[in-house]
Design a protein around this nucleic acid. Structure first.
Lengths: 84, 84
DNA sequence: TCAATGATTAGGCAAATGTCTAAATAAAAT
DNA sequence: ATTTTATTTAGACATTTGCCTAATCATTGA
């Protein structure tokens, strides 16, 4: 829960999630969309993975990141207690 | 959106929201539940108010905080784009 | 009017965060 | 074999965060 909110508390990381909504992408392809250095994006991806918001698979020299939507259920559950 | 995620990214602030689920409370009553100083809780309440997650009304020398659930709709909307 | 109570503001400090460059690792291409 | 490409790791640095105590503001009560 902590890692989840922490991961979501950054506009770049949220933008990465939105990018992955249209399908998996390599670290490099993701980094291209932003003005930050590759190491910075790599770090953001690491935090997203720690929160289980994304998964990564190594494919040759590339690393492909995929959105993991199942974690959102946890967040929805937390929000649900405030409804009504 | 930024203020919202920022406000939620702290266990104490999330606990305050859960506390307010059972009804409005004064700053002092809220602070009693935690081991932090009154100024610290006051600061947390300020961040929650900046995110519009709570509202405050002054009643005499007390300040009553009330949960504002309408903001959660914004969050649900953001989450919804990831569903399916 | 003066003291007490509830709450916030101000200022300081250590830890966490987000960024960078340089260096390391690993796979692919020459 | 060596070089190039993709990515991560390491380390540094400025900013932000979360906490504290002391001081201030505002309302109530003696």
């Amino acid at each position: 829960m902590n890692a989840l909110f922490k991961a979501l508390n950054d506009p770049t990381r949220r933008a990465i999630l939105e990018r992955l909504r249209s399908g998996p992408a390599t670290a490099g392809a993701i980094a291209e969309q932003f003005q930050f250095s590759a190491p910075t994006i790599s770090h953001h991806l690491d935090l997203l993975r720690q929160a289980d918001l994304v998964t990564s698979q190594k494919q040759g020299q590339f690393v492909v990141y995929t959105l993991n939507m199942t974690v959102f259920d946890e967040l929805l559950g937390w929000l649900y207690q405030f409804k009504s």
